[in-house]
Amino acid sequence: MRLLTHNMLSSNIKGVTNGFPLLIEVEKVVEKQVDFNEDFLRNMFPKIEWKALVEASRTMGYTELPENAESSMLDSDEFLRKFHHALIELHLEEGALVCPETGRKFPVNKGIPNMLLHEDEV
């Protein structure tokens, strides 16, 4: 699972109001190289919850993203490459996503998060 996907997912347990972003427990991270696409990054930037991406990438061991970002930074090639790496090259392969409100864990196996709910959580 890429951090781009992580940036969309919320805890979907019934009654949870602040389910975003999910915390990450890391067992294994893999990096897969992807072609650099500047237009895509520019297009994604305003849609991304930056703080969630920064936190998630740090948990995954990547500490290069600045705490705060604004669109003027998109002119910097260095910034774009870091953004690219964090957003789509880091994969959570094994571990868990954790609901920030209840602490409920959603396991991640072979890169696939299991967001299925128990009956009493729907």
Binding site: L4, S10, S11, G111, M115
Partner: peptide, 20 residues
């Protein structure tokens, strides 16, 4: 090809609605 997967029940999906 690269593709991400999520194991979930579509009808219970809660998603930030600006990215897709």
């Amino acid at each position: 090809l690269d593709m991400d997967f999520v194991h979930c029940d579509i009808k219970n999906l809660k998603w930030q609605d600006r990215i897709v």
